[in-house]
Design a protein around this nucleic acid. Structure first.
Lengths: 320, 320
DNA sequence: CGGAAGACTGCAATCAGTTGCAGTAAACAA
DNA sequence: TTGTTTACTGCAACTGATTGCAGTCTTCCG
């Protein structure tokens, strides 16, 4: 079959344990022996069998990454950064998406748990209780979900939401809407809470909505009905869907209604009108989550967000 | 530590081999014994250790997926479909991106090879020779690359390119440009070859270019210089970058120049002007590639492409 | 010069399953 | 009744690497 540690041992005239040590504890073997073994290993193109190693050590050098939707560009950048971080430390990355389903999320966690050293769980839809339970059998890093006692990386969406609202207020808007995301989403709740605390604005909450373009399109009618002049949407996809929906109803953006998204995704950056949006540090989050997992550190990390003003917001019609 | 086959065996009064068989060869064990063992396993929450299993059997139930760029929306849909297909058959999916680098591609293949039953290799940048060599040590399915003897899933980009060119010709364009992709790309070569065979059109080839928005922006000046009225771009991202670049130079799309992309990505579908593009069956390709791997079948599959006409193409200025 | 510490290296058990082979008991055929 | 087949089930070797323990050989100190 393939070349094993025994082949290398035999070919270099040492015991298998010495070969093993030259790889996993080089300081324990004589420099001369080590170079010889390495040379032979190189020549035979030896690569340690990870299954065998992890059987003995209990560690796999794999991490799992679970997101609600692999095709969402926000998660794509997160995955890209997570993969790069994993690879830098000789880890491999499993990915899967839950399709926004809590039960599928749980099954995936269980399925991964025996095969990884930890799981990065992004925007989970499971309840706190369920997650705490599951965290007993596999170590987690949560992204954009805060549970006391669990390691987390969250983005300061509350701050982003406040700044977005202030931006609308400064432009002269008085009556605005918040188009929320899915029911189980922590970020959606945070945004909602933060918005409720902003004074001087009349806020209509519309939701929950699926976090997709379709969700945005569907919410457009409600926006018109509510008679608002500004909207903060759950993410860029929803914001874009909303704009499409509004324009189909004869409402112009930003002429009649201003729209702000969340994420600062490429899709939103390229869209016309170019989206005003709250930038979310997806890459940083992916990188940090993996690093925390691999170094098995526990911490609660908060990453900053900031508003990027582009062309989808303007003063309300008829203002100075 | 965690519950093993031995615990289950002990708790249900049978030998470990019987427990093993109830999972991997149920027909070999008495129905009564089987239900008892299953009940005990369920109660103890036993899950087979995949590392141990794959050490003995040589199979891992994992597949790898390597793409040039995880953040490219075309690959996102492919990954999503591949993951779903893998999961349906109790396989897990490793992902990684090469950042368009051939050497990184090779290292990833080698790194994955011991840990997967096969690799789906999308738009590889390595040479045929290198890939043939590597295919001796791990089984592949190539996506959008054709090498005799290797299992492949390719999209009929030549057909797509021809139809796109015919579309431009029908609109009245006579002098057009082809903005190609990266040097090692099979699809880019196919498109180029197909375009060369179309008669009645003056074609300027511009490239190679990085397959990104930036690549498109950078190519804009060359388009203006070439004095063409129509462009076929390597993918939607390049097409969009091109439009951005052209407009920055005061050239309107589709007013002055018509632009066609490739992929039919969400980003392109939402962009304004809405992109005319050649639809690529990314999801189908992801699904099929994984199915071929898991069933360890070898085949050369060709998937159809088709043109989606939207708003980025129009008759050339001054035509009837 | 004796003894101890230090530096390697080898031995063999171990990780959690899988599987060829053999053994047992019941069913069946001759 | 004996021989054979069938249906399970158990035994034990095996997968490829890791690691505690023990043994050997130097080196160094008093």
């Amino acid at each position: 079959m393939s070349v094993t540690i025994r082949d290398v041992a035999h070919a270099s005239g040492v015991h298998v344990s010495t070969v093993s040590r030259t790889f996993s504890a080089p300081h324990l073997v004589n420099a001369e022996t080590r170079t010889r073994v390495l040379a032979v290993a190189e020549e035979l193109d030896y690569r340690p069998n990870r299954a065998a190693r992890s059987l003995k050590t209990g560690r796999t050098n794999n991490v799992g990454l679970i997101v609600p939707d692999l095709a969402n560009p926000f998660f794509s950048s997160l995955i890209k950064a997570a993969q790069a971080a994993a690879r830098r430390q000789d880890y491999h990355l499993f990915v899967a998406d839950t399709g926004e389903s809590p039960s599928e999320e749980e099954e995936l966690i269980l399925a991964f748990s025996k095969q990884v050293d930890g799981i990065v769980l992004c925007s989970p839809r499971l309840s706190n209780k369920a997650l705490e339970k599951l965290s007993e059998s596999v170590s987690f890093v949560l992204v954009n979900r805060l549970i006391r006692g669990l390691t987390t990386v969250v983005m300061d969406v509350a701050h982003g939401a406040r700044v977005a609202m202030e931006h609308l207020a400064e432009l002269g808007h008085r009556r605005v809407a918040l188009v929320t995301g899915p029911a189980g989403s922590w970020t959606s709740g945070e945004i909602r809470r933060a918005v409720a605390e902003v004074s001087g604005l009349d806020v209509v909450v519309i939701g929950p909505n699926p976090p997709t373009e379709e969700g945005g399109v569907a919410a457009a009618a409600g926006i018109v009905e509510a008679g608002v002049t500004g909207v903060l949407a759950y993410n860029d996809l929803v914001a874009i869907g909303l704009i499409e929906g509004l324009e189909a109803l004869g409402v112009g953006v930003p002429g009649d209604v201003s729209v702000i998204g969340f994420d600062d995704s490429t899709t939103g950056r390229l869209y016309r009108p170019k989206l005003t949006t709250v930038a979310m540090p997806a890459s940083a989050a992916g990188r940090m989550a993996v690093d925390l997992l691999v170094q098995s550190m526990s911490a609660a990390t908060v990453l900053e967000t900031h508003l990027v003003v582009r062309d989808s917001t303007a003063p309300p019609r008829g203002s100075a």
